[in-house]
Design a protein around this nucleic acid. Structure first.
Length: 415
DNA sequence: TCTGGGGTCCTAGGACCC
DNA sequence: TCTGGGGTCCTAGGACCC
C-alpha cells in the first residue's frame, strides 16, 4: 500500500505576538510578550531570551529587561485565526482545527484541482502572508503525527515535506520531545535510559517502554517507527468536558472564601452548558493548595444537570470533602470545576433538574424547577443585554480576574 | 512576594454484574 | 458453601497539549 504524503499540519508562528507586531509596526523585530502577570505568548525575539508562555511576568522581565508587554487584542486573534483556517478550507472540507491557530487537513481528494500537496502548502503559506500579513509554518507528511513534527521543524515561517521514502531518515536525529505526547516527564525518563532522539527510540525494545509508560504510551511511542500512525482527519469533534478555573492568590481554606469563587465558576460553566443544551452527569472539583499540591473529588449523577446553583452546591460539597481529607492544608491557591459525561443534544424542555435536598434519584421538584427557570431567565437577559447585566457578578463577589475574560473565551472549545 | 486557563487521554483500583 | 474470569462503570491522580 503506497500511501502518499497528503496530510498537512499548519501552525501560525508565535500567533498572538505576531498579531501584535502586525497591528503595531513599531513592535516588529522586538521582544514582545502578550500578558502581564503571566506571559500568554512571546514573540520569537523574546523566545530567544528564554521567555515562554505560562511564565510569570517578573521572571520574563528578569530574562529580558527590554521585553515589551502588551495587553492583547483578543478579538483580532479570533478574527485572524478564523481567517487563516478559512484559507485552508478553500482547498478541502477535511480540516480538523486543533486550536485557535492550528489545524490538520487531508488534501488527498483535491490534488486534481490544486496540484500536489507541497504546492497546496506553498499556496496556503503565500496566501496567509499576503491576505492576513501573518507567518504560518506547514508540515506535509503521510500521517498526522509526522505532519505535526514536520511543521515544528519548519518553524519559524517555513515548509517541510516528508517524503514517505525518507521518513526514518527525517526522524532519526530529531529529539524525542518533538513527538506528540512526550512532555517533560517522559523526556526525563527516556533520558535516563539514554534515549534522546527518535532514532534511538525506534531501536529501543518495545517492552521496556511499555513496562514503564504503560501499554497506551508504549504503543504510541512505537507507532512512528512501525507506521501505525492515525491518518484520519476529523472535521467535527465534540467536546467531552467543560470546565473553569480561577487562581485566587492565597486564601484561607474557609467557606466564606471559596463559596463565591465556586458560584462564579459554576455560572460560567452552567451558561455554556445551557447554551448548547449539553448538561453533564459528572462534576469534578480540583483544589490546589499553597504548596501547589492539588486534590480532586468528583461525583457522577444519574441525571445530567446544567443548573448553575445545583452545580455550585455540588461543587461546594465536593470542596468541603477535599478539605476534610486534607486537614493540614490551610491555604487555597486555585479552584476548578469541570463537568463531563456531557449529554448530546439534550432537550432542555425535558430537563427537570435535581432538587438538591430531595431524594437524589428523583429528578424534578418545585425547588429544582424554580432554579432551572431562574437560570433560563438570566440567560435570556444576558443574551439581550450582555453578560454583566445580571447574575452572580464578579464585582459583587470580589472575584479577582488574573486574565481577561476575552482570553478565557479564546481557549473555550466549541461544545 | 513561583507558576494562567481550557482542554484530552491514560492508569489503577474497587464495585458490581453475569 | 467460597470460588474463576470478563466486562463496565466510577474515582483520583497525572501527563500532556495549546
Amino acid at each position: 500500500m503506497a500511501t502518499t504524503a497528503t496530510i498537512l499540519h499548519a501552525d501560525l508562528d508565535a500567533f498572538y505576538a505576531s498579531v501584535e507586531q502586525l497591528l503595531d509596526p513599531s513592535l516588529r523585530g522586538k521582544p514582545v510578550a502578550v500578558g502581564g502577570g503571566v506571559v500568554l505568548a512571546a514573540s520569537y525575539e523574546a523566545k530567544a531570551f528564554g521567555v515562554r508562555g505560562g511564565m510569570p511576568g517578573w521572571r520574563a522581565r528578569e530574562l529580558c529587561p527590554q521585553l515589551i508587554f502588551v495587553s492583547g487584542h483578543f478579538k483580532e486573534y479570533q478574527r485572524l485565526g478564523d481567517a487563516a483556517i478559512k484559507v485552508i478550507g478553500d482547498f478541502t472540507p477535511l480540516v480538523e482545527r486543533i486550536s485557535i491557530d492550528e489545524a490538520f487537513a487531508d488534501v488527498a481528494g483535491c490534488t486534481h484541482l490544486f496540484g500536489p500537496p507541497d504546492e497546496i502548502a506553498r499556496t496556503i503559506r503565500r496566501r496567509v502572508r499576503a491576505e492576513l500579513g501573518l507567518p504560518i509554518s506547514v508540515g506535509v507528511a503521510r500521517t498526522k503525527h509526522l505532519a505535526k513534527i514536520a511543521s515544528q521543524v519548519a518553524k519559524p515561517d517555513g515548509l517541510v515535506v516528508v517524503d514517505p521514502d525518507t521518513e526514518l531518515q527525517f526522524l532519526h536525529h530529531l529529539p524525542v520531545e518533538l513527538m506528540w505526547g512526550v512532555g517533560p516527564a517522559t523526556k526525563a525518563w527516556l533520558a535516563e535510559i539514554r534515549v534522546l532522539t527518535i532514532g534511538q527510540l525506534a531501536t529501543t525494545p518495545g517492552w521496556s517502554l511499555e513496562q514503564v509508560l504503560g501499554p497506551a504510551a508504549g504503543e504510541k511511542l512505537a507507532a512512528l517507527a512501525w507506521n501505525r500512525d492515525p491518518r484520519e482527519v476529523k472535521a467535527h469533534r465534540r467536546a467531552r468536558s467543560v470546565g473553569a478555573q480561577s487562581a485566587i492568590g492565597r486564601k484561607p481554606a474557609n467557606e466564606q472564601f471559596f463559596r463565591p469563587t465556586l458560584l462564579h465558576l459554576a455560572d460560567r460553566i452552567g451558561t455554556r452548558l445551557r447554551a448548547k443544551a449539553r448538561p453533564g452527569r459528572t462534576v469534578t472539583v480540583r483544589v490546589r493548595f499553597a504548596n501547589l499540591n492539588s486534590a480532586s473529588r468528583s461525583v457522577t449523577l444519574d441525571v445530567p444537570i446544567s443548573t448553575t446553583v445545583i452545580l455550585a452546591e455540588l461543587a461546594i460539597d465536593l470542596v468541603r470533602a477535599v478539605l476534610a481529607d486534607h486537614p493540614d492544608e490551610r491555604t487555597i491557591s486555585l479552584l476548578a470545576i469541570s463537568v463531563s459525561h456531557l449529554e448530546e443534544d439534550w432537550d432542555l424542555q425535558l430537563d427537570f433538574p435535581l432538587g438538591l435536598h430531595d431524594e437524589p434519584r428523583r429528578p424534578g421538584s418545585k425547588i429544582g424547577m424554580a432554579r432551572w427557570a431562574a437560570d433560563r431567565a438570566v440567560d435570556k437577559i444576558r443574551d439581550r443585554f450582555g453578560s454583566d447585566a445580571i447574575g452572580y457578578g464578579s464585582v459583587a463577589l470580589g472575584i479577582f480576574r488574573s486574565v481577561p475574560d476575552e482570553f478565557r473565551e479564546l481557549a473555550e472549545k466549541d461544545l
